[in-house]
């Protein structure tokens, strides 16, 4: 009987120890995660949101469904060359709105260099122009196009 009681005590003690160990290891792992995740422990201070800001920067060049999210440009050969050279001064929207052949893009680049402080693109110029004429080709419109993408609705009265 006394042996049984002693055994029971030991079990309980072991159980307590196990719980304690579990508790401390949990605390330790949380602290460790904090330390890794937020080394300056700034999460408790005023710089709390920095972690979110840095996330934006980390994902700045994220691509989803073949589109470079930050600029809306199509993912293809030369994408980052275009992003890095053509979206500093103006929006990528100005690039994607325009449909030109290689000759006219080269003229446009020359104009930007002469009047808009665009730098010498060197070998990148060919990469950029190839990207543009391949991914944003001109569409023949003729002298007047059909009305398209009509959003039909019932006119009241």
């Amino acid at each position: 009987m006394s042996n049984d009681k002693e055994f029971e005590k030991k079990i309980k003690k072991a159980e307590k120890t196990a719980y304690l160990a579990l508790f401390f290891s949990l605390i330790a792992s949380i602290l460790l995660l904090f330390a890794v995740y937020n080394p300056s422990l700034s999460i408790f201070g005023s710089q709390k949101s920095d972690a979110i800001y840095s996330e934006v920067i980390e994902d700045e060049d994220k691509i989803e469904n073949g589109i470079h999210l930050r600029t809306g440009l199509i993912e293809a050969e030369g994408l980052m060359t275009v992003v890095n050279n053509c979206t500093n001064c103006h929006s990528a929207k100005l690039v994607t709105q325009n449909r030109m052949n290689a000759e006219r893009w080269n003229t446009t680049i020359k104009w930007m260099q002469e009047t808009q402080n665009l730098w010498d693109l060197g070998e990148n110029q060919e990469i950029i122009v190839n990207y543009l004429v391949t991914n944003y080709p001109a569409i023949a419109k003729g002298r007047r196009m059909n009305l398209k993408d009509i959003d039909w609705y019932t006119l009241k009265n």
């Binding site: 890794v36 710089q47 920095d50 800001y53 840095s54």
Partner: peptide, 26 residues
């Protein structure tokens, strides 16, 4: 992305955390 990508967040913090200036809003 904050919710879904914990590891990425850790990586980002280690790499970029110290470079962000106080008061700078991207």
């Amino acid at each position: 992305t904050v919710l879904s990508s914990f590891t990425a967040l850790i990586g980002a913090e280690i790499v970029f955390g110290s470079k962000i200036q106080n008061g700078y809003t991207p």
